[in-house]
Design a protein around this nucleic acid. Structure first.
Lengths: 204, 204, 204, 204
DNA sequence: TATGAATGAGCATTCATTCAT
DNA sequence: CATGAATGAATGCTCATTCAT
């Protein structure tokens, strides 16, 4: 009879959940798991301390869910990029843009935090196990090799070079973006210099 | 009367102090300020839980002192590099090596942690205020400009390019170095690609 | 104007109140004051979490009211038994049956819980003060003495023997009735052995 | 060289542990698991709130350990009684005395609480599973049957009569012993009336 | 009336810091 | 000096109670 009321109820619940999740993501991305107090998340979301527990079982639970979503998102992004029918260079450009220029890259930051953390809740540790830069490397290394064959990328072991490139991108996510006034993050083309082979046209 | 005993006492005291400081540096660099418990430092140093308080006023105090030393060390490194009478490229190579390849770069990691942290003890925040990548940039930008004039470095605003390069190096310090088996950090020459201008000789 | 609507409203209100009270009694009797959450009562009553507060001021208030009713009921039961024109033995038999065999003895269980609790809301503590096994003892001791005179009950101080007997009955209310499969609570006649004087007829 | 210092250290640790355990037993026995706050235990033991956690992992952990000891103690008591080479009546008398008159019967009270509780920590629930009045019944039923053959105990199914008797004893443990001024718990011989067969000598 | 989301005080637990030995 | 037991403030989490709908 009144599906609206039902969906509204759900919608309101989901909205709250989203609101708290977004707040948590923001704080976690900035301060890490240990540095984040539940009261910070509640304050950031503009709700009371207790309310988060209506939507999440525990602080670790929120963290885990965010990491799960972050990993899913990252994998998805990689697959999307893998499906683009463009040149290897363009694929790496897309990847770099996605990671560096995306305004909402708190998710990426979170993944990096997690991967460079020294101790994690069991659940999260398992998630990471399954994830891993490895998969990214496996996906991008063949693309890189193609680029090498085209003479576009520098010579060397594709897996190692990709790993290095991803490491650089990873590191950038961990650097506080508000370090300096007038700070602009490194531009995509600047970073691509790391792997793009110099050509005569460029050189002259 | 017995200067030996006094100096011994001091020496022993200093040794203890050093021992605890080193342990703290190691743990802080790996786990951050919040993630580090005093008991971890004590365990790492192989001393009792209470002993650190004979040598340091508080956990924050240890952290502050380490950050202070790290900043001093970084500045010193930069100055040393500045005084080298070698080409701009060699200076950037030396800088990169120092940061990336130095085994004992926990100090650098610490500085980066601090600079990407969102909340810090007052004292440390002030230290950082005074420090800053700014000084590094001020120091390296002219060197970079020299390199540009020599046709060795890529074109663009020297301050911005230096900032980007330092940002990349900073990021690398924050990435967990044990992410993958067979992991090797990016090599110095790989990173220099970011700023080195391609030449025909390289290209062909 | 419309007394029906009013009384209906009252009736409906009373019904709700009863419904919640019954649910509360059931849960309190099984889990005690501390072990009972308001949400358990609401779930047991099949209403929303907040509704109880339209009918009762607080959790303690529900508890107090139940204890009050329990005490009233117990006193009434005692008085009813006191008014029976039967032999002392039959009166004790009736009392025992009432307490042990009555299916709806949650009230008795509640009183016992309260009396063996160490800390209670002020209000309840006062109720208990006024109540007390003492009154029961006062009521039953003369009956017991009558029974002794008839040679039906064992010798000894009537007040103490009654107190002991009531203590045994009280204890039985606190024992979980689902301890064992095939469990049957002690039968009335078994318990009466405690106070009934053996006779030759029985002995032989 | 100085075994005393070592054993002293242990002794002091064990003493603290014991002190806290005793305090916890006292409070748990009186107030139950839910009704007991860690602060009560700490206060009862005369130590700070945090100290208990140096000796026990959690509140549930203390409770579990106490229940374990209580069960062990109960089993031991039953075995001891089983090994007495005395008449069945004397065995039941000893059992009753042990439970009712022992000053330190907080352990028994604890077991009874646990067995009549409606929800328990997993660990404790498992302990209870393994325990059970069943074992007691199995141990005492043959003794009871012997007593019946001697004409000392009343007729009926030995297992059921023993169960009833133990139920009565269990209940007594749950009754607050400070209910009334001048309160004396039921005496052993009073309780034995439940199962002892009247004889002519008694009757006359 | 009835609902259940929201609040915040209270309790369990952790950990920086102190201090008797 | 060194130890590690002890303290208590801070933080995660629960649940009685309120209130907008």
């Amino acid at each position: 009879m009144n599906p609206t009321s039902d969906s509204k109820r759900d919608a309101s619940g989901d909205a709250r959940r989203e609101q708290i999740k977004r707040a948590a993501l923001k704080v976690f991305a900035r301060r890490g798991l240990d540095g984040t107090k539940m009261s910070m998340i509640a304050a950031e979301a503009g709700v009371s301390d207790g309310l988060a527990y209506r939507y999440f079982k525990s602080k670790d639970d929120i963290f885990e869910m965010l990491v799960r979503e972050a990993i899913d998102g990252a994998n998805e992004a990689f697959e999307t990029i893998g499906r683009l029918s463009v040149s290897p260079l363009e694929r790496f450009r897309a990847l770099t843009k996605e990671i560096i220029e995306d305004e909402n890259n708190d998710y990426f930051v979170l993944v990096q935090q997690v991967m460079s953390a020294d101790s994690l809740p069991k659940e999260v540790a398992q998630l990471i196990e399954g994830y891993s830069t490895l998969r990214m490397i496996d996906q991008m290394a063949p693309v890189f090799a193609d680029g090498q064959r085209d003479g576009v990328f520098i010579d060397g072991d594709p897996r190692e070079l990709v790993m290095w490139y991803l490491t650089v991108l990873s590191g950038l996510m961990l650097v506080d973006r508000s370090l300096l006034k007038d700070y602009r993050p490194p531009q995509t083309d600047f970073l691509l210099n790391l792997i793009v082979k110099p050509r005569q046209e460029q050189g002259v």
